[in-house]
């Protein structure tokens, strides 16, 4: 009996500590924010919520200078909180050389998705099949249960964000084949277009981040490919059932005090209310 009473008390003391009271700020007390382009709507929504203003009112005060610049600004103490993708090796080294320890907290989920024409009868690929397609081992849809057609596997330029994600999250050290020049598509949107219209045949395969694909106007000819038989949607991405997931992160200096504005903002983003706001802003909850 005593054992259960101790458990009960411990539970009361510890188990219910997830209480997060929504902090309130003015624009003057709100932390200095920076980040990547893709997290701007999230950043604006959070600021509006926590300062009690509309998104339109806070928008002129929110400036994201893109990922690398945001990391540099954070490390140089020119900003206090950034919403970004995971730091690169160079950015981690710069932090280390500057004597700044970074705290990296995932706040919303993101997925890497594969796009094909809506008439492509192949609905699912395994991660291994995708790797084989992009390394040139599998070249025909018939080898993955489709028609006898060559797979037109689009890639994006080497230095693009999507290509970095593709190499890290999908290829995982494997070397992708060198695609014909016309299959290297210069931008995320153009890739979508190319897959949608390529000779009006269901033989194309492309990729992108989920956030930009899911609500984009004019993608009615596009279908997202299941990976390992899991269709990418908000639910399967948040639960990580969909296998190719990553996150956008809140990153700040570890030296931030326990009761700092920065930590209050991050804690609130991770609360149910914060996660709901993220989802309402077009992102996928992190939990």
């Amino acid at each position: 009996m005593k054992k259960y009473l101790i458990l009960f008390v411990l539970f009361l003391l510890l188990g219910c500590q997830k209480t997060v009271v929504q902090p309130t700020f003015t624009m003057e007390t709100y932390p200095r924010i920076d980040g990547s382009t893709v997290t701007i709507p999230l950043s604006e929504a959070i600021c509006a919520k926590l300062t009690g203003q509309t998104i339109e009112q806070v928008r002129p005060y929110i400036l994201h200078t893109k990922t690398h610049s945001a990391y540099v600004n954070l490390i140089d103490k020119k900003t206090d909180l950034i919403f970004v993708t995971y730091p690169s090796v160079d950015e981690l080294k710069y932090a280390q050389d500057s004597g700044v320890e970074l705290e990296i907290v995932p706040i919303v989920s993101e997925a890497f998705v594969f796009l094909t024409h809506k008439n492509n009868p192949v609905e699912s690929l395994t991660l291994k099949q995708i790797q084989d397609i992009y390394s040139g081992t599998i070249t025909n849809w018939k080898d993955v249960g489709g028609p006898d057609l060559p797979i037109v596997a689009f890639q994006r330029p080497i230095n693009s964000g999507s290509q970095t994600g593709f190499l890290d999250l999908v290829m995982k050290g494997l070397t992708p084949m060198t695609p014909p020049t016309e299959w290297v598509v210069a931008d995320m949107g153009m890739l979508i277009e190319a897959v949608a219209t390529y000779e009006n045949q269901p033989d194309a395969l492309g990729y992108s981040y989920y956030y930009f694909v899911v609500d984009m106007w004019g993608n009615e000819n596009i279908r997202l490919m299941k990976v390992d038989n899991v269709y990418p949607d908000n639910s399967t991405i948040a639960s990580k059932q969909y296998p190719i997931v990553t996150s956008y992160y809140a990153v700040f200096r570890k030296s931030e005090a326990a009761d700092s504005s920065v930590r209050k903002v991050v804690d609130w983003i991770l609360s149910d209310a914060g996660q709901q706001l993220a989802e309402d802003s077009g992102y996928v909850k992190v939990r």
Partner: peptide
């Protein structure tokens, strides 16, 4: 919106 969407998709880096 359809033609604008095509322009936007094609133009982000072009």
């Amino acid at each position: 919106s359809d033609p604008l969407s095509i322009i936007i998709k094609k133009s982000m880096d072009s």
